[in-house]
Design a protein around this nucleic acid. Structure first.
Lengths: 137, 137
DNA sequence: CATTACCCCACTAATTAAGTAGGATACGCA
DNA sequence: TGCGTATCCTACTTAATTAGTGGGGTAATG
């Protein structure tokens, strides 16, 4: 299952990407428009900022804004920040690899084989999709 | 993340598929060979039996066995039984569809768009992969 | 009829998800 | 300089799920 965190994060990003301007938008505005709990969204946007996707401005006229053009924001990056590894098992993960304790030989492991295929196709989709693609722009 | 339940289930199925014979195999044998907790595996094999993948026999010489040829067991079926919906969000699921409470229009939803693509590619992999493919036979 | 091996329910511990609460910090403007 | 605005950040809570464990029941075999 996709976590609400990721779901809300993607929705917030597309909200920003659909705007004509690049001015900061308050959390409260996004929260209302997209029906997301304000405090929860606050945390999500914070992690997106800490990971270089969003910029922020404090005080009056402040808020969050995209740091790059939507067409330059790959979904692989967003997914890894919000949801974690693309792979469904650590022994197949490119960025978070970990050997299975119970598995003597990965090459003979059916789960490994299947999950490698799945990871590859997921990666291909996430790599070929940018925020711009999801906005219908 | 893939649940251990699914992981163990697939490993147990491939164990059975790799055998030459079709005689019943005791849970304890599979449990030891594949390093899976016996009681946990018991429950997993039970659900696979209830869903028509495995047959079982009680008493001496009893155990579990595949009901079909490995080449006729699609991974879509196995995954849905053990892991649940293929889709990562209910609003994209074919078999377990549910509308999002917060989303006014699915066609404009970025999450919906992205997750539909992901579901399609996952489905394609699971449909084109049978137990036989995972055994290296 | 005793042994074997699956059947099945109930319980538990650990982890994660999804928020909530409340204050600290920084910015802009008068 | 001081007030209001809006992000920053830590800690807490609640519910659900995962990964088991325990223990007795049932059916088949010899």
């Amino acid at each position: 299952m996709l976590s609400k965190k990721t779901k809300y994060g993607i929705k917030a990003l597309t909200y920003l990407a659909r705007l004509e301007h690049k001015l900061p938008v308050q959390i409260a505005i996004i929260s209302e428009s997209e029906n997301i709990s304000l405090k929860f969204l606050e945390r999500i946007l914070l992690t997106l900022r800490k990971n270089g996707i969003l910029g922020s401005k404090k005080g009056k006229g402040g808020g969050y804004y995209l740091l790059k053009d939507p067409s330059e924001i790959q979904m692989t990056v967003v997914m890894r920040i919000l949801e974690g590894p693309i792979s469904m098992v650590p022994c197949v993960s490119l960025n978070f690899y970990e050997k299975c304790a119970d598995c003597p030989d990965e090459n003979l492991c059916a789960v490994h084989t299947l999950m490698t295929q799945l990871r590859d196709s997921s990666l291909q989709i996430f790599r070929n999709t940018t925020l711009a693609d999801l906005c219908g722009k």
